Simulated scan of single mutants.
Amino acid sequence: MALVERVPETGPWAQLYGYSRAVAVGPLVLTSACTADVEARPHLKGDAAGQAREAFRTALDAMVHAGAGVSDVVRSRLYVTDPVHADPVGRVHGEFFGVVRPTATVVIVSGLFHPGQIVAVELEGFRAWRDID
Rank of each mutant, 00 (worst) to 15 (best):
38 V>N: 05
108 I>F: 10
52 A>D: 11
93 H>S: 06
10 T>D: 04
120 A>V: 06
23 V>W: 05
23 V>Y: 02
130 R>A: 14
2 A>R: 14
92 V>I: 11
18 G>N: 11
114 H>I: 14
117 Q>I: 08
8 P>N: 09
125 G>L: 12
13 W>M: 08
131 D>W: 09
60 L>D: 03
29 V>S: 01
119 V>Y: 14
98 G>W: 06
80 V>S: 01
131 D>H: 11
8 P>C: 06
133 D>E: 04
43 H>I: 03
106 V>A: 06
83 P>T: 10
55 A>W: 05
112 L>W: 12
124 E>W: 15
37 D>P: 01
101 R>V: 10
35 T>W: 00
72 D>F: 00
79 Y>A: 13
26 G>P: 03
92 V>W: 06
109 V>Y: 07
73 V>M: 10
46 G>Y: 10
79 Y>M: 13
42 P>S: 04
107 V>F: 03
56 F>E: 04
44 L>H: 04
38 V>F: 07
90 G>M: 02
102 P>V: 08
93 H>M: 04
13 W>Y: 08
39 E>G: 03
48 A>E: 04
16 L>H: 06
100 V>P: 11
20 S>Y: 05
33 A>L: 14
10 T>Y: 00
65 H>R: 15
58 T>E: 11
106 V>K: 05
25 V>T: 11
43 H>C: 00
78 L>T: 12
24 A>E: 03
9 E>G: 11
114 H>V: 15
126 F>P: 00
123 L>R: 06
36 A>Q: 03
130 R>G: 13
51 Q>W: 09
63 M>I: 10
77 R>F: 04
13 W>R: 12
22 A>R: 05
6 R>T: 03
85 H>C: 05
112 L>I: 13
65 H>K: 14
22 A>M: 06
25 V>W: 12
68 A>S: 10
69 G>V: 13
16 L>G: 04
33 A>S: 13
82 D>S: 08
70 V>A: 11
13 W>N: 04
11 G>R: 14
116 G>P: 06
29 V>E: 04
